[in-house]
């Protein structure tokens, strides 16, 4: 090469430097081996397995065909998307409002109380949460009995009960809300009072401030939180497993059945479903990055 870099000019023994650098990579070996064995390898097996016939081990596309055409699996996929979109959307909007209301409260115990409550409840998910909702809104649950007795609302009727879609959303929102509060609080704290005041002195109403400054500044954090909530709900397994195994048709539950069920052991199909889930998540991430392109210009 015609251009000689400054480093090469200065470095009297360039060979030794390169050898040292390569040796330095050896220090990463344990970490990379671990991630290879427990991240890349499993994903590789999943990807390859999704193209193999479960019984014969030959190449096939039928797993994907089944996953995308059989109404049972397609519905599971759509249900998973709906539940994660709805609960992430509700979680982002309401969680954002809750965090904002808490942060702007004049009473300091309100602020710290909301943060503490969010910390505890955001970690309270999975099987115990499902049981808590059964005890609250299940057929003999405290709130459902109360609603039926006092207002005649039959929560456990055929149409609207805990083990159906709406009930599942309520349970998911229970951990999405506090998670959102925790995720968005740092960004909200970054909104400076002077921006609001400067905007007001230039004639902006409260709505104009939020439309032109507040929301655009928050947008990257809101979008990132939404994606995280979405992923959180999309991959959730324990909660719905304990709440309504067999009642609500979601992809993670199907995958669990296909590898663990006594009846329908079909790892090929499970692999195809899992691969589709990852493709969808990757799609979400890509969309998020595209959306964020504009903001990236003004973010440090």
């Amino acid at each position: 090469m015609a251009v000689i870099s400054v480093e090469q000019k200065i470095n009297l023994k360039p060979k030794q430097g390169i050898v040292k650098k390569n040796l330095a990579w050896l220090g990463l070996l344990p970490f990379i081996l671990f991630c290879g064995a427990f991240e890349l390898l499993p994903m590789g097996f999943m990807l390859v397995g999704s193209f193999l016939d479960t019984k014969k081990g030959t190449f096939t596309l039928s797993n994907y065909q089944d996953a995308l055409t059989k109404p049972f699996y397609l519905n599971a996929f759509l249900n998973s998307i709906y539940v994660s979109l709805i609960t992430a959307g509700v979680g982002t909007i309401l969680g954002g409002l809750i965090a904002y209301s808490a942060l702007t409260s004049r009473r300091s115990w309100v602020r710290s109380g909301v943060i503490t409550l969010s910390n505890v409840t955001a970690n309270f998910a999975g099987v115990p949460l499902a049981f808590a909702f059964v005890a609250t809104l299940g057929s003999t649950g405290l709130v459902s009995v109360f609603l039926e007795k006092s207002m005649g609302i039959d929560f456990f009727s055929k149409e609207s009960n805990l083990y159906k879609f709406g009930g599942l959303c309520l349970v998911y929102i229970y951990f999405q809300l506090p998670l959102m509060v925790l995720l968005i609080t740092p960004a909200l704290k970054g909104l400076r009072r002077e921006w609001h005041e400067a905007a007001a002195s230039l004639g902006a109403s409260i709505w104009q401030y939020w439309r032109h400054i507040g929301l655009p500044v928050l947008f990257p954090a809101l979008a990132a939180s939404f994606v995280l909530l979405m992923a959180n709900a999309f991959g959730a397994y324990a909660t719905v497993y304990a709440l309504a195994q067999g009642y609500i048709n979601l992809t993670p539950i199907q995958i669990g059945f296909l590898i663990n069920g006594d009846v329908a052991l079909n790892t090929g199909l499970a692999n195809a479903l899992a691969t589709l889930m990852i493709v969808l998540m990757a799609g979400m991430l890509f969309a998020y990055q595209q959306l964020n392109k504009r903001s990236r210009r003004w973010i440090r």
Binding site: R192, E194, W195, A198, S201, L202, A204, H212, I213
Partner: peptide, 21 residues
């Protein structure tokens, strides 16, 4: 009168420029 109707310009110690503009 609310701040946004007073037609008073303000300059802050911390500049307070809108970062997204």
């Amino acid at each position: 009168l609310p701040a946004n109707r007073r037609k008073i310009g303000m300059v802050f110690q911390s500049y307070a420029l809108f970062p997204n503009m």
